[in-house]
Design a binder for these strands. Structure first.
Length: 189
DNA sequence: GCGACAG
DNA sequence: ATCTTGTCGC
């Protein structure tokens, strides 16, 4: 369990969550030295970011492990927008595995919109975090999508919420936002 | 008033 | 992220 105090500010997600992700990675290394992740799927963006350095990049540099950014919503940076052109490209995605590049005004490809499984309507946004190319990142992500969200991230989400519901719902858990105070305590993403 | 806004 | 309302498919 962790206690997060830093607020969520769009564009600065890493400053709020990276410390706990690094901690989790270190704990795994201590308790299971034999298990070395070959790659980490991160709930957030990699280079698809205001300053080209999202939480997946932070975690990668801090751990030295390859990282892939997987966002559920498009971060509208470098000219990228959820305009008709974008919506049209989404409609054109035919089956699971279909993608289209996210090219910013700068001309740079910041990531790929991916139809993660056959029945999906809304794509997920994959971007390079650290030590991987976009093509490999998309292929790996798609390979572990039974549902829209890659199973590793989906399970982390489901299990963390279950843990919260079970441990801090009735005892001392309920959020008690007194005047001028706002805080959370959890291992979410 | 309206759109943006990773999680 | 969270919440609500409603629909559809297995």
């Amino acid at each position: 369990m962790v206690t997060v105090s830093a607020p969520y500010v769009a564009g600065y997600l890493a400053f709020r969550e990276a410390p706990f992700l690094v901690e989790a990675a270190q704990r795994l290394q201590e308790r299971e030295p034999g298990l070395r992740p070959q790659v980490l799927l991160v709930d957030g963006n990699g280079v698809l970011h205001h300053r080209g350095f999202g939480v997946a990049c932070h975690l990668g540099v801090l751990t030295g492990l390859p990282c892939i950014g997987v966002a559920k919503n498009l971060l509208q940076v470098d000219g990228l927008a959820k305009d008709e052109q974008h919506k049209g490209q989404i409609r054109d995605l035919q089956m699971g595995g279909d993608v289209f590049p996210l090219r910013g005004t700068s001309g740079r490809v910041l990531g790929m919109a991916l139809r993660s499984y056959n029945k999906s309507t809304k794509p997920i946004y994959v971007s390079v975090g650290h030590r991987t190319c976009l093509e490999s990142a998309v292929r790996l992500v798609q390979s572990c999508c039974r549902y829209r969200i890659p199973e590793p991230i989906r399970q982390a989400d489901i299990r963390s919420r279950e843990y919260i519901r079970k441990h801090l719902s009735s005892p001392l858990g309920g959020t008690s936002p007194g005047p001028g105070r706002k805080e959370e305590a959890e291992p979410k993403h």
